[in-house]
């Protein structure tokens, strides 16, 4: 019955795939990014018309700051997805890191660097653990990190006894991270920029990045081309752990204390949505940091607009879920996935 409802799709599909095949990378990626820019402009215009303050510099900074933590997680999520994996435990990892940074800061006699180092070390360990479970335990990445989503959240709650930990805003370093500015831009945004540029360069300019795309694009071919794919997968998950720890530290700096769950819960959904909207193929091998950042901006602008308009925050969840599904449907259409059985 479904097939009967869409007969015109047959000639249309054939016509659409042909030109796309002729235009290489630039066509596909550029097309997606143009769509995102269009959507971003539309969102800004609509909310700008509805509310005079929406497009103000102050509000733009609010959007940017709010999007930073999501942005960091989305950037590394993009790397994992390109590599053919997925990490839905990023939010919980950030929560653990937030708690650890505040607790280590306190117990080291208000030493911000001790707090940050401890958080990053714990993040790396969690990432390595994720990678090892997936690669050596042969656990599907979605299942492994779903387990992580629950377990690391529980770990953060255990460590913190479920309460906010410490108070860090008496320390100049944390204040600088959470409230400081360089050249007019919040420090948090600078951190996102630095991480994003570094990851972008890693992906596009180094052999490591080439190999990451290769592992996600065709793991058998990557192995036969001499790439140690296990090493790459574990390293990518470790990178996620480290960057999620940075996000956790920023969360601590912004809220003033270590937060086991508030502020980090639900970030995995935002990160994955941003990656998918930004053009990552969920089966791996495809995706760009630029696209992901545009999607982060779009999500941030939308979230903020809905808040500024006083729309029930429950709607934001609905909007986000819808966007994730729409992004993936659009992608599957593009790849011409056959509508038979479970999708690949």
């Amino acid at each position: 019955m479904t097939t009967a409802a869409t007969p015109p799709a047959v000639p249309n599909d054939g016509g659409r795939r042909r030109p796309a095949a002729r235009i290489p990378v630039l066509g596909a990626v550029g097309g997606q990014n143009l769509g995102l820019i269009g959507a971003l402009v539309a969102v800004l215009t609509v909310f700008g018309l509805l509310n005079d303050n929406y497009l103000s510099l102050t509000n733009m900074q609010v959007i940017a700051e709010a999007a930073t933590i999501t942005g960091l997680l989305a950037v590394v999520q993009t790397v994992v997805i390109i590599c053919g994996g997925l990490d839905i435990s990023v939010g919980s990892q950030a929560g653990v890191a937030s708690v650890v940074s505040a607790m280590a800061f306190t117990s080291a006699g208000s030493n911000a660097f001790a707090g940050m180092a401890a958080a990053v070390a714990v993040g790396l360990l969690i990432g390595l653990l994720n990678g090892a479970i997936i690669v050596y335990g042969r656990v599907n990445p979605t299942i492994a990190t779903l387990a992580g989503l629950a377990a690391y959240k529980g770990l953060a709650q255990l460590l913190s006894d479920g309460r906010a930990q410490g108070y860090v805003l008496n320390d100049a370093v944390f204040v600088f991270l959470g409230r400081g500015r360089i050249a007019g831009l919040p420090v948090m945004v600078w951190i996102l920029i630095v991480v994003a540029v570094a990851v972008h360069v890693l992906l596009t300019r180094t052999d490591i990045g080439r190999n990451i795309y290769a592992v996600g694009g065709n793991d058998t071919a990557a192995r036969l081309a001499g790439i140690n794919i296990n090493k790459y997968l574990v390293a990518v998950y470790a990178l996620v752990g480290a960057v999620a720890a940075v996000a956790g530290i920023l969360l601590t700096a912004r809220t003033g204390s270590g937060q086991p769950t508030s502020g980090s819960e639900g970030l995995e959904l935002k990160a994955i949505t941003a990656s998918a909207l930004g053009g990552c193929a969920l089966r791996g091998g495809k995706g760009t940091i630029g696209g992901t950042l545009l999607a982060v901006a779009l999500l941030g602008a939308l979230d903020n607009g809905l808040t500024v308009q006083g729309i029930n925050s429950f709607w934001q969840n609905v909007a986000q879920g819808t966007l994730l599904v729409v992004a993936v449907v659009v992608q599957q259409r593009r790849t011409g996935e056959r509508a038979v059985g479970l999708p690949a």
């Binding site: 290489p24 990378v25 300019r205 180094t206 052999d207 490591i208 080439r210 190999n211 795309y213 290769a214 694009g217 065709n218 058998t220 071919a221 990557a222 036969l224 081309a225 001499g226 790439i227 193929a281 091998g285 495809k286």
Partner: peptide, 30 residues
């Protein structure tokens, strides 16, 4: 199934096994 990265460029597919000879530090000499 075993050799090609279909969505990558011909250049990428050709150089993938020799990248270690084409890099300075970890940067590919494009």
């Amino acid at each position: 199934a075993q050799a090609l990265f279909l969505h990558r460029t011909i250049r990428d597919n050709t150089s993938i096994a020799v990248l270690e000879r084409l890099r300075r530090f970890r940067f590919v000499k494009r």
